[in-house]
């Protein structure tokens, strides 16, 4: 099988995710976009594992999922806390930590 289609799909998904992070203000949406990028990477890893015929890529994909799960826990907790204090999830409003 040719990995080209899978890799193309992974690239498209990554680009969509990156665009979402850069363009959307809503923290939840940005967060989802990050997950999309992670999964695009997972897809690329799995494709590569399949193409090379070993399990390294699959192992990395599992690690990424574990990390993503942990990140969701922490990230959503932060977003919840910010929402409680500011009644908003806009990432542009939480810009106090600057020069």
């Amino acid at each position: 099988m040719s990995p080209d289609a899978y890799l193309s799909l992974a690239s498209i998904l990554f680009a969509i995710g990156a665009a979402g992070v850069l363009l959307r203000r809503n923290a939840i949406i940005a967060f989802m976009s990050i997950e999309l990028m992670l999964n695009a990477a997972n897809l690329a890893f799995v494709t590569a594992a399949r193409a090379w015929g070993n399990l390294d890529g699959q192992v990395v994909a599992f690690f990424v999922m574990v990390v993503a799960a942990a990140e969701v826990v922490v990230g959503l907790a932060i977003i919840m806390t910010i929402f409680r204090s500011r009644q908003s999830t806009s990432v542009d409003e939480t810009s106090l930590l600057r020069w």
Partner: peptide
């Protein structure tokens, strides 16, 4: 000034 606080 580069450190403007905007995550995006």
């Amino acid at each position: 000034r580069v450190e403007n606080g905007f995550v995006r």
